[in-house]
């Protein structure tokens, strides 16, 4: 049954997942080529000055990529479920409802984390060809909140999609935008280094929001 549930979620999202992964790889290749070119034409001293003295982050092009990936993948997974209330079919499958929902979310969230992880790994690997460990560490610390933001974006779309009432859904969307915005306030290197723990806690809490929306859907919440 678990395999069948994975099969369903994978059928819905596979092209979107692969497309976002491919886009991420292309963005990385572009950034690494650009840095290599800068090394050659502007020189090591200039780049060092830009990074260390002027605190510029060279991988800013990656900033919104994880969030956009999360939004696209969640949309590909959830829109077919809420369209014509197809979620009713899913919840009628002969498994416990909590198990069905957990399986749906963890399956695609897992694949999304792998896709984002591969992308981040590729970038770090490429960057390590040019930069020393200290700069790589700072790059990871800067990129990490954006990548966690991608996971949060996925969960928040799920939270908004499962909500049965449009009025409440609009409120959920506004809350989601506000929460997601926290992750993208700055591209200053290491801007979130002291708040990483909070950045991780927010997606964990938003998982509860998802179950709240499912509970409301299951109870058949109607407009008053």
């Amino acid at each position: 049954m678990r395999k069948a549930l994975f099969y369903k979620e994978w059928t819905k999202t596979r092209w979107f997942l692969l497309a976002t992964l491919a886009c991420g790889v292309l963005i990385n290749i572009y950034m690494l080529l650009k840095i290599g070119r800068s090394f050659r034409f502007a020189g090591h001293e200039h780049l060092w000055d830009v990074i260390v003295n002027r605190n510029q982050f060279l991988f800013s092009l990656q900033q919104y990529y994880p969030a956009i990936s999360g939004l696209i993948v969640a949309g590909a997974q959830m829109i077919p479920e809420i369209n014509n209330k197809r979620l009713k079919l899913s919840l009628h499958l002969p498994l416990k409802e909590s198990k069905i929902i957990t399986n749906m979310i963890t399956t695609i969230l897992g694949v999304l984390i792998i896709a984002l992880g591969l992308n981040l790994g590729f970038l770090i690997l490429g960057a390590s060809l040019y930069f020393p460990t200290q700069i790589i560490q700072s790059t990871i610390i800067t990129l990490l909140p954006w990548y966690i933001g991608g996971i949060l974006a996925y969960l928040l779309v799920v939270f908004c999609c499962f909500e049965p009432l449009w009025k409440r859904r609009v409120i959920n969307i506004l809350i989601s935008i506000a929460l997601l915005n926290i992750y993208y306030l700055s591209n200053f290197p290491g801007a979130y280094s002291k708040n990483i723990f909070v950045m991780i806690i927010i997606p964990l809490i938003s998982l509860l929001f998802v179950y709240l929306s499912v509970f409301r859907f299951k109870s058949g919440v109607q407009p008053k």
Partner: peptide
Amino acid sequence: KQRIGLLIEGHVQYSF
């Protein structure tokens, strides 16, 4: 649930 067959209004199925 295994013993109950459900047809949702509009013959909704997984169209993907």
